[in-house]
Design a protein around this nucleic acid. Structure first.
Lengths: 155, 155
DNA sequence: GGAACTGCTAGTCAAGTTGTCCAGGAGATG
DNA sequence: CATCTCCTGGACAACTTGACTAGCAGTTCC
């Protein structure tokens, strides 16, 4: 179920230079291509690697503003709120968290002014009792996984 | 700076089936390979597509628990806290937000018990005045970008 | 109108990579 | 000792990539 150091190094390599392919990765790791291929297949089958989809930058798409909104939900309205938020393209991510019907969602917007429109659309829904929004100013640690992969590989 | 519908469909295709490659993508889009190639190059050069790195699932790596921690930082300690959190592998992401020296970070852990260890490590640092943690129970909308890409393509 | 640009098509080419085999060796397990 | 599992190093055909070509259509600008 876990991963070993070879798996870890393979993931690191592919994370740094995704275009290199299995053959080049096997060369750099100093193993046979079949081995790298088998490891990669196994990691994907196990769900450790979910895929190699394009990583799209919302800012480059014209949405440079990110915010996190904490929502308090009316009892029993959870499912409705979820399907409402699913329809809003600017909602990139939604979690339900511990707390009294609380949810946390990540939003993006074209500008601070546009963020108001997005929040209105998110919050303008019956099941939502209250919302508080925190606008992201800096992102000192962008979403990363490599340190965790190394940690997991060393266990 | 924006993207058109062909760009949008190309991104969608690659997001759904990343392994198809440029040639197959061009076939499905009904355009010449050179066109798909050129579009893809342009999207990457513009930073819209940052890369095709492996998407690793922390849960499959043995870290099924996710939490968000809001941290209140002592005046002037921001930089120190940032570099501290950077060294913690379980910190997947860190943002500074509006508010009085507030930060928001995404954590993962091996179990709820392990989360305590992670939080202790995160919070056990001088510059942090207070922390409140919300444990993620469900993830009704996993990190997604396609709806936003469609939106951007239609403008 | 005509010239210059830009973006798309449809084709070529060599070089490289992929998927899929195989037989054999090394290390662990019972 | 026999069996398993994993890795190696090699092979093969089929395919994809990167780089290039010439030609065509639509815009923009004088």
């Amino acid at each position: 179920m876990g991963i070993d150091r070879l798996d870890g190094r393979l993931i690191e390599l592919l994370a740094e230079e995704p275009r290199i392919g299995v053959l080049e990765a096997s060369r750099r790791l100093g193993v046979a291509r079949g081995t790298a291929q088998a490891r990669l297949d196994r990691l994907q089958a196990a769900g450790v690697i979910r895929g190699f989809g394009p990583q799209v930058d919302p800012a480059a798409l014209g949405y440079p503003v990110t915010a996190f909104a904490t929502l308090e939900i009316k009892q029993g309205q959870g499912a409705d709120v979820r399907s409402h938020l699913q329809t809003v393209p600017e909602v990139l991510e939604l979690h339900t968290t511990t707390g009294h019907g609380d949810m946390l969602c990540r939003l993006v917007a074209r500008s601070n002014a546009d963020l108001q429109r997005v929040i209105d659309r998110v919050v303008g829904f019956d099941g939502i009792v209250r919302a508080s929004t925190a606008i992201v100013m800096e992102n000192p640690v962008p979403l990363r996984i490599i340190p965790l992969v190394k940690q997991a590989a060393d266990d």
